[in-house]
Simulated assay, not measured.
Amino acid sequence: MDWLERTAKLRQWTRSGTRAPHKPLLLLYALGRFQEDADGRLRYSAVEEDLQRLLTEYGPPNRTTPAYPFHHLVSDGVWEVRTDRGPGSPGTGVRDLRETGATGQLAPDLRAALRREPSLLGRIARLLLDLHFPPSLHGELCEAAGLELEPGEAEQLARVRRQRDRRMREMVLTAYEYRCAFCGYDGRIGTVPVGLEAAHVRWWAFDGPDDVENGLCLCSLHHKLFDKGVLGVADGHRILVSQRFVGHSAAAREHVKALAGRPLIGPQPGARPVAADHLDWHTSQVFHGSPRPAAAV
Rank of each mutant, 00 (worst) to 15 (best):
M1V: 14
R6V: 10
K9V: 01
L10H: 00
W13Q: 07
R19W: 05
A20N: 15
H22I: 01
P24Q: 00
P24D: 04
L26R: 10
E36W: 09
E36Y: 14
G40K: 03
R43Q: 10
S45E: 15
V47W: 15
E48A: 12
E49W: 06
L51H: 02
L51C: 02
N62W: 12
R63Y: 13
P66R: 07
Y68G: 01
P69A: 13
V74I: 12
S75F: 13
D76F: 11
D76G: 04
V78Y: 13
R82M: 11
D84G: 00
D84E: 03
P87S: 04
G88S: 03
G88P: 11
G91M: 15
R95M: 07
R95W: 12
E99N: 10
A102K: 05
A102T: 05
A107C: 07
D109Q: 15
R111N: 02
R111M: 03
L114G: 07
R115N: 04
P118E: 12
G122P: 07
G122Q: 06
L128C: 03
D130K: 01
H132L: 01
S136G: 01
S136M: 03
L141M: 03
E143A: 15
A145H: 02
A145L: 02
G146V: 02
L149G: 03
P151L: 09
E153Y: 01
A154L: 12
Q156P: 13
L157I: 01
L157Q: 02
A158N: 13
V160R: 06
R161Q: 14
R164D: 09
D165N: 15
R166K: 11
V172L: 07
L173R: 09
L173D: 06
E177Y: 06
Y178A: 00
R179A: 15
F182D: 03
F182K: 00
G184E: 02
G184Q: 02
R188Q: 14
G190E: 08
T191P: 13
H200V: 03
H200K: 08
V201P: 02
F206A: 04
D207K: 03
D210P: 06
E213Q: 10
N214F: 11
C217L: 04
C217E: 14
C217N: 11
K224A: 04
L225I: 06
F226L: 04
K228Q: 14
L231G: 14
G232C: 05
D235T: 07
G236T: 01
L240I: 09
Q243S: 08
Q243G: 11
R244D: 13
H248S: 14
A250E: 13
E254Q: 11
E254C: 05
V256G: 01
A260H: 12
G261R: 14
P263F: 05
I265W: 12
G270Y: 15
A271T: 00
R272K: 14
V274K: 01
W281M: 04
H282D: 05
H288N: 08
S290M: 12
